Amino acid sequence: MRRGLWAALLGLAVLALTGCAMGESAPAAEAPLANQADIHFSQQMIPHHQQSIQVAELAAQRATSEFVKSTAEEIRMQETAEVGTMSGWLRSWKAEVPSTSGHSGHSGHSMEGMLTEDQIAALSAASGPEFDRLWLTTMAQHLGNGVRMATAVLASGQHTETRALAQNIVTEQNAQIAAINGQLAG
């Protein structure tokens, strides 16, 4: 009798452990994987953010307006963190990660949504209040391009975290554009 009881208890223990192990893997299977739209978004948004960082660093060197300096620093910090996040996703998906060494590079300037080399050169050559005004108009355009890119992945992406980042980009960058437009109007 004892032997049957021990066998039953052992069977229950094995069943319980097997159930626990199966339960641990279920959430990972339920998480939506990235589709091509999610991958493309990160691969395009990384160089776009790198260019934002480049333009923000110009403001740190050339701006006279405290609004421009503080907005540039906010953009630089936020987008640097997002580049790290998207790079991590791409590595986890075993997808190509765009180079983040240096700035956006000349090849990225031809990508849709990027500022042109002439726009970057004009910013680099400007100074004082002229720089501030040019920076505001250029950054508003660049942020608007980022909003369009994020809106596109919201329509076709399936990776939950990518969609959350894209929604945050839409919200944050629209707010930054509104603040920039307010400065330009003032």
Rank of each mutant, 00 (worst) to 15 (best):
A175L: 12
V68G: 07
L12M: 08
I169Y: 04
T162Q: 10
D132I: 00
A121K: 05
A155V: 07
A95Q: 15
A16K: 03
E74Y: 06
L17W: 11
E74R: 09
V83T: 08
V55C: 11
Q119I: 07
M86N: 13
W6T: 13
S92L: 05
C20K: 09
N181R: 03
L5E: 14
S25V: 11
R163Q: 06
H103N: 10
L90D: 09
W6G: 09
Q54R: 12
E117A: 09
R62F: 09
W93A: 11
A152L: 09
V14Q: 02
E172G: 15
L33F: 11
A21E: 14
Q141H: 09
E96R: 06
S156F: 03
E74I: 03
A13T: 12
T151N: 03
A34L: 13
E73L: 13
Q173E: 07
E96A: 12
T71Q: 11
T64R: 06
H109M: 11
E172M: 15
Q50Y: 12
E82C: 13
E117G: 04
A7C: 13
H106R: 13
S42E: 14
H106D: 15
A121I: 02
G113H: 06
M77K: 15
A166Y: 02
S110Q: 08
A31I: 09
V14A: 10
E30S: 11
G182Q: 05
K94P: 08
G113V: 04
L165Y: 06
T138W: 01
H40V: 15
M22E: 08
L136A: 06
E172C: 15
L58P: 04
L15F: 06
G88A: 00
S92N: 05
I39T: 00
E57Y: 12
S110C: 02
A150H: 10
P32C: 02
H106V: 12
T85F: 13
A164T: 05
N35T: 05
L17P: 03
M149L: 12
Q61M: 14
G157M: 00
T151Y: 04
A34P: 09
V97P: 11
H40L: 15
S99A: 03
